[in-house]
Design a protein around this nucleic acid. Structure first.
Lengths: 187, 187
DNA sequence: GTTGGGTGGTGATTTGGATCACAATATGTC
DNA sequence: GACATATTGTGATCCAAATCACCACCCAAC
């Protein structure tokens, strides 16, 4: 259980048992059912989630209530409306479970406390942020550049496990392609 | 000259004269002409640039040598192939000047040294990273969601000054819309 | 069982935007 | 000044993908 989170962090920075214990004390653990909303657009308190098991999607609803997928996240990934989280503002996105999901979560206060008390963890967060930024840029380029077919192939290549757990409908929404077009690509 | 960089950083963290002096010693200053390539795809040493004046674009060339615009950057913005920079890998993108540009730049070694010697600067970098990530997500949503017209309107709203300095052709490439379509939007 | 929501394949039709083509200004530079 | 080069507008044509419309599943809930 914890070991998942600990291993995850220790891929970047080493922690003593004591340090990890202190860190863990700032997290809480939650269990969500399939279809649950972890947080919704407009909510005040946004937390950052480390997913132990399960699968979630971060979505944006436009004024026509169409749903757009900002990102997926599964085991060993972090997810949140990070803009809202770090700026203590209200959520712009909604986080919904596609599968039953177990996760650790932390508040912004907890996060800041940890950074202050265990400063050596800061590079860990920074690396996550850079990774997220880089993969967003990759996705932007894919959206700008690629045909639906290539977008889909790249998705399969980049996220082989994810692509087997998410419905084609969801993948289509993520790629910005209609469900029908996606279906016709590989048939 | 320096004051620009100093003000920029001090919007997030306060620095003593001594600290800023130490920091500045790790930067170099460069002057580029219009059309110059600051770095190119495939290059080994990638630096991070703080732009004092001028305007640049970060571009990606696909296999058909079509040019796609990852981002623009102007005064008071940072730019680099940050993935290459932080991972010490070769550039995936090319950075080209759209105007004559003056910039401070730093190597990854310099960056790491500063972080170590003046740890209180770390939140500054982190905030930049989060900001970049959030705006990338916004752009992804815009690409997924909006019509060319709305994309353009949002661009004008988000980057009023930038939109007056960049040619329509460049804006069209940034938005993922053809030059002709963009032209027809507002005529 | 049966009802119903989610999923996925596929045909027919429509359309928004790409592409092609050309003209008219700028802008630059030798 | 004159010649090349970017920039923008605009018409005509084309096509890839969206949309609309059905049907066939698969499962989960009652």
């Amino acid at each position: 259980m914890h070991s998942s989170l600990r291993n995850h962090i220790e891929r970047v920075v080493d922690l003593s048992d004591q340090e990890f214990g202190y860190l863990l004390a700032h997290f809480e653990y939650a269990d969500f059912g399939k279809g649950d909303l972890i947080f919704q657009k407009g909510e005040q308190v946004v937390r950052a989630y480390y997913i132990v098991s399960g699968l979630v999607k971060l979505i944006y609803h436009d004024e026509n209530v169409n749903e757009h997928i900002v990102s997926f996240a599964m085991e060993d990934w972090w997810e949140s409306d990070f803009n809202a989280f770090f700026n203590r503002s209200t959520a712009n996105y909604t986080l919904k479970c596609l599968e039953a999901t177990k996760a650790y979560y932390i508040s912004i206060e907890g996060y800041e406390k940890i950074c202050k008390e265990i400063p050596k963890i800061q590079p860990f967060w920074f690396q996550k942020a850079i990774g997220g930024f880089a993969s967003s840029q990759r996705r932007i380029l894919s959206l700008l550049t690629n045909s639906p077919k290539v977008k889909y192939e790249q998705f399969l290549k980049d996220y082989p496990t994810l692509s087997q757990r998410v419905s084609k409908t969801q993948i289509a929404a993520y790629l910005g392609v209609s469900r029908e077009t996606l279906s016709r690509i590989y048939s």
